[in-house]
Amino acid sequence: MELWFSEYQSKNVRFSLRIKDMLYSRKTPYQFLSVFETEEMGRIMTLDDVVQLTTRDEFVYHEMISHVPLFTHRSPEKVLVIGGGDGGTIREILKHPVKKVHLVEIDEQVIEASKKFFPSLSLGFSDPRTSIFCEDGIEFVKNNKGYDVIIIDSTDPLGPAVGLFSREFYKDVFSALNNDGIMVAQTESPFFYGDFLKRVYGDISSIFRFTNIYTAVIPTYPGAFWTFTMGSKSIDPTAVDPGELPDLDTKYYSRDIHKSCFVLPPFVKNIISK
């Protein structure tokens, strides 16, 4: 008998993967967490039946949400990650000479599942520069300041993550950043969530001096074409010279990608300008 996992990426679109084995399934205090072994995409983690990562393509998301803002800043020392309990973003941040990384993940069981089933992502949890806080990221940002870069590595704007996409939250993020600080958030697919992208872009651009959308291709996310929205207090990310960036051990991110990812297709420009 065939076993399939299916995610409804919209009310009319379903994405399915053939499953080899179910490795883990549990209702946490916040969401339903599962880990599967698949035929095509390796090991996957889902939350409330939505794919969060696969071992085959996770590097795209984690490299792009991390290296673009960190190299835009050029000298980050203290970085905050809100969400990101799988550890992939932490892994990429620690490739930079940062001094402190704070991870704020509301669901401790996501962290524990990643340690057990995704060791290639969670290895940064044991780095002495990493501190982990299992609490509400919205409240944490209100009470902690002095960050060079804040990365909002959240799930979709549903359930426990919905407050991470509000204008009030972005204002608190602004206050938590240093004068040359930068924030970035994952902001969904322009194909399926254009209205959402427009709202978030408008909220962030009303607070930060520079607001820019950049993109990446992530096969298992809705539409496969994904956006990130960056807010910067003083640094224009499009003025960064990629030729001056150092090399890193990456699979997707590169100097050329850093420059080209800010070039938006006309339909995305129209979404945020109409």
Rank of each mutant, 00 (worst) to 15 (best):
residue 97 P to F: 10
residue 214 Y to D: 10
residue 226 W to E: 09
residue 197 L to G: 03
residue 143 N to Q: 15
residue 246 P to V: 13
residue 10 S to G: 07
residue 99 K to E: 13
residue 88 G to V: 05
residue 133 F to E: 06
residue 132 I to V: 15
residue 209 R to I: 06
residue 18 R to V: 02
residue 263 V to A: 11
residue 151 I to L: 13
residue 116 K to F: 01
residue 115 K to S: 05
residue 247 D to T: 12
residue 92 E to V: 11
residue 58 E to H: 09
residue 62 H to G: 08
residue 143 N to M: 11
residue 158 L to F: 08
residue 114 S to V: 10
residue 227 T to V: 06
residue 6 S to Y: 00
residue 124 G to F: 09
residue 23 L to S: 06
residue 239 A to T: 04
residue 229 T to V: 14
residue 66 S to R: 02
residue 9 Q to H: 01
residue 176 A to W: 11
residue 200 V to E: 11
residue 34 S to W: 00
residue 235 I to A: 04
residue 24 Y to C: 12
residue 177 L to N: 11
residue 142 K to N: 12
residue 39 E to P: 02
residue 222 P to C: 12
residue 227 T to E: 01
residue 157 P to N: 10
residue 101 V to G: 07
residue 231 G to H: 04
residue 229 T to N: 05
residue 155 T to S: 13
residue 248 L to D: 01
residue 263 V to K: 13
residue 159 G to I: 07
residue 76 P to G: 06
residue 126 S to P: 08
residue 229 T to Q: 07
residue 31 Q to N: 08
residue 181 G to I: 13
residue 201 Y to E: 01
residue 221 Y to P: 03
residue 57 D to T: 09
residue 183 M to Q: 01
residue 198 K to F: 05
residue 210 F to E: 11
residue 51 V to N: 03
residue 2 E to Y: 07
residue 149 V to I: 10
residue 231 G to L: 00
residue 13 V to F: 04
residue 159 G to C: 07
residue 18 R to N: 09
residue 242 P to L: 14
residue 34 S to H: 08
residue 17 L to A: 07
residue 184 V to R: 01
residue 226 W to N: 04
residue 93 I to W: 03
residue 270 N to K: 15
residue 86 D to K: 07
residue 254 S to D: 10
residue 219 P to F: 05
residue 229 T to A: 07
residue 63 E to K: 11
residue 274 K to Y: 06
residue 149 V to Q: 02
residue 57 D to G: 05
residue 111 I to A: 09
residue 161 A to W: 08
residue 72 T to H: 09
residue 208 F to M: 03
residue 119 P to K: 07
residue 220 T to P: 12
residue 66 S to E: 03
residue 174 F to S: 05
residue 162 V to W: 00
residue 78 K to E: 10
residue 133 F to M: 04
residue 35 V to W: 02
residue 184 V to L: 01
residue 247 D to I: 10
residue 76 P to L: 05
residue 212 N to Q: 13
residue 230 M to A: 08
residue 179 N to T: 15
residue 247 D to E: 15
residue 20 K to M: 01
residue 166 S to L: 12
residue 1 M to F: 07
residue 52 Q to N: 11
residue 77 E to M: 12
residue 197 L to Y: 07
residue 263 V to L: 15
residue 41 M to S: 08
residue 105 E to V: 07
residue 105 E to Q: 11
residue 32 F to S: 13
residue 23 L to V: 11
residue 183 M to N: 02
residue 169 F to E: 04
residue 214 Y to E: 06
residue 70 L to R: 03
residue 48 D to H: 01
residue 245 L to G: 09
residue 20 K to C: 03
residue 219 P to D: 02
residue 255 R to S: 12
residue 206 S to N: 09
residue 202 G to E: 10
residue 82 I to G: 05
residue 61 Y to A: 02
residue 22 M to D: 00
residue 92 E to A: 07
residue 208 F to V: 02
residue 114 S to Q: 02
residue 254 S to P: 08
residue 241 D to S: 14
residue 112 E to H: 11
residue 234 S to L: 12
residue 39 E to M: 12
residue 12 N to Q: 14
residue 244 E to Q: 14
residue 199 R to S: 14
residue 145 K to G: 08
residue 68 V to R: 00
residue 94 L to S: 11
residue 273 S to N: 15
residue 30 Y to F: 15
residue 184 V to Y: 00
residue 103 L to W: 13
residue 160 P to D: 06
residue 173 V to M: 04
residue 168 E to K: 14
residue 199 R to T: 14
residue 126 S to W: 09
residue 192 F to T: 06
residue 183 M to G: 03
residue 203 D to A: 09
residue 13 V to D: 15
residue 234 S to N: 13
